[in-house]
Amino acid sequence: MARKSVLTSQAAPPAGAYSQAVSAGDFVFVSGQLPLDPNGALVGAGDIKAQTRIVLHNMAAILREAGSSLDDVVKTTVFLTSLDDFPGMNEIYAATFAPPYPARSTVEIGRLPHGMLLEIECIATAQRKTT
């Protein structure tokens, strides 16, 4: 199965040896997105709702570049530095996705760099382009 790296300037650039996303077959695998603007600056310090919005915005931009969308997301994994932030994250998440919601796991983790409160990764179906 051929793999293709996905990269857009509309989301924060990778900070290491990974792709923003990889398309493979009928799926797009989006790497964990952090609350960073396209220049790599932190958005919404200490504000779980603002951080969730920018993370989902970045995810949407990457999926668009891959020919997919948030409507095509089938699975997400949310990493929170504190489960106390779950209600705020979930409010923005629920307003962003439409039913049927993607399958989701939410995990509390030790920490993220620079005061980041969450990271979200996803798997989406790829839309086939006809020629």
Rank of each mutant, 00 (worst) to 15 (best):
L117P: 06
P99G: 00
E108A: 09
R53Q: 15
V28E: 05
L80T: 02
G32T: 11
Q20G: 01
T8P: 01
P13W: 06
G110Q: 09
R64K: 14
T76H: 03
L83T: 08
L83N: 08
P100C: 05
H57I: 11
T8R: 08
A94Y: 12
T52K: 01
P99E: 12
A24D: 08
A41T: 11
L42R: 05
P100M: 09
V30N: 00
K129Q: 13
A124R: 06
Y101T: 06
A2C: 02
G25T: 06
L36I: 08
S105Q: 14
R104L: 08
Y93G: 00
R128D: 08
A41N: 15
S19I: 02
A45S: 15
S23W: 06
T131E: 11
Q127I: 12
S5N: 14
A124Y: 03
N90Y: 12
P14I: 08
D47K: 07
E119Y: 03
L80W: 04
S68C: 05
V43L: 09
S5K: 14
A17S: 14
L117A: 05
S9I: 13
E119H: 05
G40P: 01
V74S: 06
F79K: 08
I54V: 14
I123G: 01
Q33P: 00
A98N: 13
Y101K: 09
G88S: 10
S82K: 10
D84F: 10
I54L: 02
N58W: 01
F97S: 03
A66E: 02
M89W: 15
G25C: 04
V22N: 04
T125H: 12
G40S: 07
L34A: 13
R53P: 07
K4C: 11
P35M: 00
Q33S: 03
E108Q: 14
S9W: 12
K4Y: 01
P113V: 10
Q20M: 04
P100A: 09
S5W: 13
F86K: 12
D37R: 04
D85S: 11
R104I: 09
M1R: 11
G25A: 08
V28F: 12
T76M: 07
A24Y: 03
D26G: 14
F86T: 08
A66W: 04
Y93S: 01
F86W: 12
Q127S: 11
R104T: 09
H114P: 00
H114G: 00
A103T: 12
D47Q: 09
R104N: 07
G88E: 09
I109N: 05
P87K: 11
G110P: 04
I120D: 02
I120P: 01
S19C: 11
Q51V: 03
Q10D: 15
D37V: 05
E119M: 10
E91I: 08
F97G: 01
N58E: 03
S69C: 09
G67H: 07
G32R: 10
N90S: 13
L42G: 05
E121P: 00
V30W: 03
R128S: 13
